[in-house]
């Protein structure tokens, strides 16, 4: 398998290189692989304390992504649980959920900058908002889809609402919850980057805008490679957590192949 992956990557890079070599696409449109590699090595070899270092920005992006994800996922899960358990909560929350769901949520990024400023708060908020919805929707479906015979087994034991939730609904919802969390972590990074484009002092989005203004396309590509790798690490971490917690599900790895 690894051989095939390596081979596929080699073919891709070779095609890219020949596209650059055998055509007259200017390097500010499509830089050569080797200049992207050079920009990447330059960006990651600098001290993390320097503003031109990728680490300086990546660390900030990562911090906002993870905090935003944690906040959004927590709110989403708690809200989903209360909506699933109490009709009053569901009816109260439904107009907002439906209304906000049809809104392209990244469009509120400028508003968040106005409210929270150019610091990390607006980034975290954007990441949290984007994480919240997929986690909420998937969680809600998960909590609702408990098998009837399991609920009857608990009813026969006169189990309380909390006991039924804790022993049946919550563990049973985990595969769906993880499906939501997988989307959530990707969206959290998306939200952070968009927020950094809109207005921030640090972050991968900020350095990409700077590189773009000086037409350093190779630098932009290098930043993208680094972001892609970071996303991969985040998703892999999530998958590891899922394998530990949802080892029992027949199709535990629902997001395989993404």
């Amino acid at each position: 398998m690894w051989l095939q992956i390596a081979l596929s990557l080699a073919v891709g890079v070779a095609a890219w290189q020949s596209a650059v070599s055998f055509s007259d696409i200017p390097s500010y449109v499509l830089p050569a692989p080797k200049s992207v590699l050079a920009a990447l090595l330059d960006g990651i070899s600098q001290s993390p304390l320097v503003r031109s270092s990728f680490w300086f920005h990546l660390f900030d992006t990562l911090k906002a992504t993870v905090s935003g994800f944690a906040i959004g996922a927590s709110i989403g899960l708690v809200l989903a649980a209360f909506m699933a358990e109490f009709r009053v909560v569901e009816n109260a929350a439904l107009p907002y959920v439906v209304g906000l769901q049809s809104l392209p949520k990244v469009a509120i990024a400028p508003l968040l900058v106005i409210w929270l400023g150019y610091g990390s708060e607006s980034k975290v908020a954007m990441a949290a908002v984007l994480t919240l919805f997929p986690v909420l929707i998937n969680g809600l479906q998960g909590f609702r889809s408990s098998a009837r015979d399991r609920l009857e087994m608990m009813a026969a034991l006169k189990a309380s609402r909390w006991q039924t939730f804790r022993h049946i609904k919550l563990p049973g919802a985990l595969p769906m919850i993880f499906a939501g969390l997988h989307i959530g972590i990707v969206y959290a990074m998306l939200g952070t980057i968009v927020s950094e484009f809109t207005g921030a002092q640090r972050g991968m989005g900020v350095i990409m805008m700077q590189l773009q203004t000086v037409s350093d396309t190779a630098g932009v590509f290098a930043a993208l490679v680094l972001l892609g790798f970071t996303g991969y690490v985040l998703i892999s971490t999530m998958r590891l957590l899922q394998r530990r917690l949802v080892f029992w599900a027949e199709n535990g790895d629902q997001t395989r192949g993404i």
Binding site: D149, R150, E152, M153, I168, P171, L174, W248, A249
Partner: peptide, 9 residues
Amino acid sequence: FQTPVLLPW
């Protein structure tokens, strides 16, 4: 019950 209804986790 008709089925074991054991919790897989």
